[in-house]
Design a protein around this nucleic acid. Structure first.
Lengths: 243, 243
DNA sequence: CCAACTCTGTACGCTGGCGTACGAACGCTC
DNA sequence: GAGCGTTCGTACGCCAGCGTACAGAGTTGG
């Protein structure tokens, strides 16, 4: 993000802590803030009438939660849930809206991210249709890891099943295969990836398609992520505000 | 669309004919035009490496094809194919980009549509995960009909199968059930809906969710559609330009 | 008018994932 | 260190949808 733009934005950011399972947006309700995860992950998931659910997108430090607030819709039919606890910055939606009135580079950034998100959703749809639970678990793990920039994540199989929209037992089996193959180590909600190249080769093409598209649309990601990380280090020492 | 905006736009629109199966955008290639279907339907579909494919969104007279041209990405990993032959207006992408530089009401319209499209994609993902071919066929028929404002459409089961990402035989069976129930009549690529309320009741919730969201985000749709229809009537008499 | 082609219907075995049920292992609390 | 709740592993019957194959019905073209 350009230095000058950043200076205008930074003062309006507030650091908040997002706990596992926290609901950031409920389906159909308008929220006053837009969130920029730093070391947290937020899942956009849709909940069916019968309670079944499926994740339609993942948002980490590459993006933001609350597109509808500046896209003009105000709300979405989906719910945003914290998938991995951590920190985020938030900003009053009104500030973003004002930014949109004066079109500029920030807006361009947001729109590009939106397209990346669009790609992710579309690919999720394709993946749900054509690929096995095994492949989807690999894809999901990789996407989550990318957003944590780590080789470990905390997540019960039950939750993963909710995200993928499959049975918990299905995840157990798929994870068991990966474990026996020495690709991951699973232990009561703690997953450690031992052989990432192998994991990538076992995932379906969907992961790579989305990854490449994000890289293309958001090429500043690396510096951006490290920038956010720097700010985090400064702010998380101070008492964390409410969420 | 506001009268004043429309006057600025109208001169830049060119009427074109879109033939069944025409590829408007190929995955990864940048196109010089944005398309506004009038009585045609365009499917956004993703083609897997093994050739299998699935539709991730439908675009008719409620929207436009070529979001990436103004979102900033330029290209998408998906392909746009004409699902139902008909007419459309097109506009040079550069004109749209210039519009985006001066933020305004037109931009707001586009962004709103984008959010609606986002919803459609997400819902497609959910539907692929949780609902039966029977239900999905109903949803698909309804969405297509809405975009044609007709009770009949021309589409072989083979093509529908491609769109839904299922086997042709699966569509045959599902359509057979609907036919025996007296909901539709199917005859060599010509589908006529006899009992729409029934069809709606047999579809999954996904149809209604997307419909409502489009209605909420694009409330001017009705007048907009009829406006386009009026222009179509004027222009289609004249020799149609190339596509 | 016949041939070739397209579209639709039906059948059959197979498998991935579902629903359900139960037990074992782990970790936290008192 | 005993008990309890959470998490994970496994097993079994079931079914939707897949892959494959083939046949009838309609359409088009020579």
């Amino acid at each position: 993000m350009p230095e000058t733009e950043w200076e205008r934005f930074a003062p309006h950011l507030t650091a908040v802590y997002l706990g596992l399972g926290d609901v950031i947006y409920e389906s159909g309700t308008e929220q006053p803030h837009v969130y920029f995860p730093t070391d947290s992950i937020v899942s956009l998931l849709y909940v069916l009438e019968d309670g079944a659910s499926a994740e339609i997108a993942i948002v980490g430090n590459e993006g933001l939660v609350g597109i509808s607030l500046f896209m003009g819709g105000g709300t979405t039919p989906s719910r945003a849930v914290v998938q991995s606890a951590g920190h985020a910055f938030r900003m009053r939606a009104q500030f973003i809206r004002d930014e949109f009135v004066l079109a500029g580079r920030v807006q361009q950034l947001f729109l590009r991210y939106t397209q990346a998100l669009l790609t992710q959703m579309g690919q999720t749809a394709v993946c749900n249709r054509h690929h096995s639970v095994d492949q989807q678990l690999c894809r999901w793990l990789l996407m989550s890891l990318d957003r944590l920039s780590s080789d470990e994540l905390t997540m019960t199989q039950e939750l993963i099943a909710n995200m993928l929209g499959v049975r918990r037992e299905g995840v157990t089996e798929a994870a068991g295969k990966l474990q026996r193959a020495g690709v991951i180590r699973y232990n009561r909600g703690r997953i450690k990836v031992l052989d990432r190249p192998r994991l990538e080769s076992m995932a379906c093409e969907c992961y790579e398609v989305v990854r490449r598209e994000f890289a293309r649309l958001l090429p500043w990601q690396n510096s951006q992520a490290s920038l956010r990380a720097k700010v985090v280090r400064k702010t998380t020492r101070s008492p964390l505000s409410d969420r």
